[in-house]
Amino acid sequence: MSLDFIIAAIITVVGLTTPILLAGLGELVVEKSGVLNLGVEGMMLVGAISGFGVTVFTFNPWLGVLGAAAGGAAASMLFAVLVLQLNSNQVATGLALTIFGTGLSSLLGLSFTGRIIVPFLSVFPDWLAKDPVWRLFFGHSPIVYFAILMIPLTSWFLKSTRAGLILRAVGENDLSAHSIGYSVVGVRYAAIAFGGAMAGIGGCYFSMVITPMWAEKMTAGRGWIALALVVFAGWRTGRLLAGAYFFGILMALELYAKASGFSFLPSQFWAAMPYAMTVVALSFISSRGTAGANAPACLGKPFLPSS
C-alpha cells in the first residue's frame, strides 16, 4: 500500500463523513434543547436543491452554501411552528418534514434536472495540494474545514457560554428554565433553525461537491444515519466527530472490501452497521447506568407551561 493509495482512501472517507457530521452536529444542538427533529433527511434534500439552485443562478458556490443553509433553516421552521406553537407530536411532525422535504425538493428540482455546476472543491492554490500529504490538508472543499471547525465551536458554545448553558437548561428542564424567565420556545426556535441550516449545508455537500448535479432523493438516507450518529455519540460533540469518521470508515471499508474481492461479510451486514453500532453504543451506555446523564431529559416532550 502506497502513500497515494492511503491518502486517496482517506479523501473518500472525508467525503462520506462530512455530510453526516454537519447534519449530526445540527441535530445534536436541536436535541440538546429538548427537541427531537426526525426531519433531517428532508432538510438535507431541501438544502441540496437550494444550494444547487443558488449556484446555478449566481455562479457563486459560497452563496450556494448560504442558500443551502437558508433553505434547510426555512424547512425546519415549518417543523418548529408545528411542534413549538401548536405542540404537535415531535416524532410524527419530524417524519412529516422528511416526506415534505423530499417532495418539495423534487418539485423545486424539476427545472434543474440534467444541469451541472463546477464542483465546489479546494480553494487553495493548486501547488499546495500537489503533494499527496499536503493534499490531505489542503485538498478539500471549504465545507469540510467548516464542518471540522464547527465541532470545537459548538462544544465551546454548549459548555462555556451563557447562551449554551441556557440551551442545555431548556433541554434538561424546560419548566424550571421557564420559571426563571427564559424563553423556552425562543431558544428552541433558534436551535431548530441552527439544526436546519447545518442539515442544509450537509445536503448541499452532495449536490455541490461529491456529484455536482441535482437528482431526486440524492441524499439516499444519510439523514437517518446522522440521527443515529447523535445517539451513538451520546450527545457529545467530540464523540460525534469520532463517530462520524467511524461511520465514514465503515462505509468506505465496505466498498474497499467488495472491490478487493473479500466476501467474508454479506453486504447487508455493512449497510446495517451504523444502526447496529448505535444499538450497541446505547446498550453500553445503559449498562453503565449513565443513560439518563447523557440524553437531554426533555427530549421529545412538548412544552406545556400551563399544565
Binding site: 479523501i11 467525503g15 439516499a220 474497499y256
Partner: peptide
C-alpha cells in the same frame, strides 16, 4: 439502483484500486 453519494465513493474506490 440509485444512491449518488455511494456510487461516487465506490467509483473513487475503484479508481484508487
Amino acid at each position: 439502483w440509485f444512491d449518488p453519494p455511494k456510487e461516487a465513493a465506490a467509483t473513487e474506490t475503484l479508481i484508487n484500486l
